[in-house]
């Protein structure tokens, strides 16, 4: 019954948005910043507001019937306060602006974190933001950053959905609302495959890398027989009753992975991307240096989060 009703309401809304774009403001996506103004804020009474209206009507008729002027005066006052609360609901949204959206990184299927930057000159309270299934409520003084989690399904550019911003401040009797449809897309990375073989590296890359002492000084330790004299920290040892030796961090020597699109001929397109994504992830996790060769693009050897992000983003936008 309830779900039927909801489905009916949903269908009515879809119809209304198709037939009455002016009413629901099925707006084209627009560039940021978006500032809410009176031309795009709508106000409707809530269910509670309608109920309260009926109650006010009952009080009004009762006061008139019993010629009870004191009650009539207070009923009028409550009614006028209700009307004023409608204006306050409008004022909660009016002048509010969405100045920017920053998107985090996420692979397809995982929620993507959006940071929405809202600003307003006056302080606002109880502003709500609905995004698909998520609903947030926030107060605002000056600027605020709001974190939203956006569900993703597939890699590539994802247009931001329409956000509903609304408020039933201060009494919950009226609901002022507006749509925010930012003209912005976020990039969703491909989802790495769950498990698979390691990359088959070309023969010349298989040369055993000679272990090399690390370059960075890690710590001082006590002298042990066999330590090279040039590693003794003489200055530090002078203040100590034993000899101290500089200990160097020696990272495990790693092969460089040269990941190539063409090496995965046996797989279909998405599977290739998923595998490459997994290898990229593994390489980054293991601290390897890696490069990526794609049909029309080549990313040179590198490592670190920026390199990883560049590789993943390139994979994400593959046709």
């Amino acid at each position: 019954m309830r779900s039927n009703l909801r489905r009916l309401a949903q269908r009515a809304r879809v119809w209304a948005e198709r037939r009455l774009p002016a009413l629901t403001r099925l707006r084209q996506p627009e560039p940021l910043p978006i500032e809410l103004g009176r031309r795009r804020i709508y106000i409707v009474p809530t269910t509670f507001g309608l109920g309260f209206g009926v109650l006010l009507l009952v009080m009004l008729v009762g006061a008139l019937n019993y010629a009870n002027n004191a009650a009539l005066l207070l009923t009028c006052m409550l009614g006028a306060a209700t009307a004023a609360s409608m204006l306050l609901a409008f004022r909660t949204l009016d002048g509010l602006s969405l100045r920017g959206i920053r998107a985090g990184h996420a692979v397809a299927g995982e929620p993507l974190e959006l940071v929405l930057d809202f600003a307003a000159q006056r302080a606002r309270e109880s502003v709500r933001l609905d995004c698909a299934s998520e609903s947030l409520a926030f107060a605002l003084q000056g600027t605020t950053e709001l974190r939203l989690r956006l569900a993703t399904t597939r890699r590539g550019w994802l247009a931001l959905p329409r956000l509903r911003i609304w408020s039933s401040w201060p009494l919950g009797l009226f609901r002022a609302w507006s749509w925010l449809h930012p003209q912005q897309s976020v990039l969703v990375w491909p989802r790495p495959e769950a498990a698979g073989p390691p990359p088959v590296l070309p023969g010349d890359a298989r040369e055993r890398l000679r272990p090399q002492p690390g370059e960075e000084l890690a710590a001082l330790r006590d002298y042990r027989r066999g330590d090279a004299p040039r590693h003794i920290a003489w200055k530090a040892s002078a203040r100590h009753h034993d000899l101290l030796v500089k200990d160097f961090d020696r990272p495990e020597p790693r092969e460089t992975w040269r990941l190539e699109w063409d090496a995965l001929r046996a797989l279909d397109r998405e599977a290739r991307i998923a595998r490459l994504a997994r290898w990229l992830g593994d390489a980054e996790a293991q601290g390897r240096r890696y490069s990526l060769q794609l049909p029309h693009e080549r990313i040179d050897i590198g490592s670190g989060p920026a390199h990883y992000a560049r590789c993943m983003s390139t994979l994400a936008v593959l046709p």
Binding site: L64, N65, N69, C76, M77, A80, A81, A83, A84
Partner: peptide, 25 residues
């Protein structure tokens, strides 16, 4: 504050709401 802001409209409504000549019940 809300009630105070509502007072002018409330007074107007109070003055102008037509009174019943005879009670409904």
């Amino acid at each position: 504050g809300l009630l105070a802001a509502a007072l002018p409209l409330a007074l107007l409504a109070f003055l102008l709401l037509p009174r019943l000549n005879s009670p409904l019940w």
